[in-house]
């Protein structure tokens, strides 16, 4: 057990959640952060799907890393990711049909999420399977919590609901409160991500350029 959760693996897992977050620090995976965060539910499913796919493609690539011919390594990584994405999308269609309809093309577009290729190329190609798995989980959750945070504010202020349930009481609307339609539009996702980056950098001085 001590080998499984050593200080190093802890660092690999916690790094991407905070100081080395793939979205706020490396600014990867922004495209899907815009697309699926107008409601909380698709954001959660998207976050989980990406986490599962990064973790397992990391493990697979890490297991194969010594056999992969260098010249076609990017193609091999793409094939592994594409296969996993297809499996996840098929499973969603079979067991969570409504969510898969909502996410429509974005599940397929996980293939193009830069976080995946970035982790495969930068980490899994040169590390052991267990560390790669932890790294995948860390980066997946790092991506997911940003998505969920953005979706939380967008759904709350844009639609007045959370996970589809109305949370802003009817009395507010009668008193003249109006949902902010601007929050539903994609640009607000960018602005919210920027706000998170701002807070993040204000709290971690070492991230600021001199």
């Amino acid at each position: 057990m001590s080998k499984l959760i050593s200080d190093k693996t802890k660092e690999i897992f916690l790094g991407p959640l905070g100081k080395n977050n793939p979205v706020t620090v490396q600014v990867l995976g922004i495209c899907s952060a815009l697309a699926v965060t107008s409601k909380l539910e698709p954001a959660i499913v998207m976050g989980l799907s990406v986490t599962i796919i990064v973790a397992f493609s990391n493990v697979i690539i890490s297991l194969l890393r010594n056999t992969i011919p260098n010249r076609i390594r990017i193609i091999v990584q793409l094939v592994v990711v594409a296969a996993l994405v297809t499996v996840v999308s098929e499973i969603l269609k079979a067991f969570a049909y409504d969510v898969s309809v909502q996410l429509s093309v974005y599940i397929g577009l996980i293939i193009t999420n830069c976080i995946l290729m970035g982790r495969l190329e930068a980490f899994a190609m040169s590390n052991k399977p267990w560390e790669s798995f932890v790294d995948g989980l860390g980066n997946g959750f790092g991506y997911a919590w940003i998505l969920v945070a953005v979706a939380f504010f967008r759904e709350l202020t844009g639609s007045g609901s959370l996970l589809g349930f109305k949370v802003i009481p009817q009395a507010f609307y009668q008193a003249g409160y109006v949902n902010n339609g601007l929050m539903i539009l994609p640009p607000m996702a960018l602005i919210l991500v920027a706000c998170i980056i701002w807070i993040h950098r204000a709290r971690n001085k070492e991230l600021q350029e001199k």
């Binding site: 056999t67 992969i68 011919p69 094939v79 296969a83 499996v87 499973i91």
Partner: peptide
């Protein structure tokens, strides 16, 4: 390597589907 990889992945996806 490329051929084996593609065949294995195709088989797996066909099974899942």
């Amino acid at each position: 390597y490329a051929i084996v990889m593609v065949v294995v992945v195709a088989l797996m996806l066909a099974l899942v589907s």
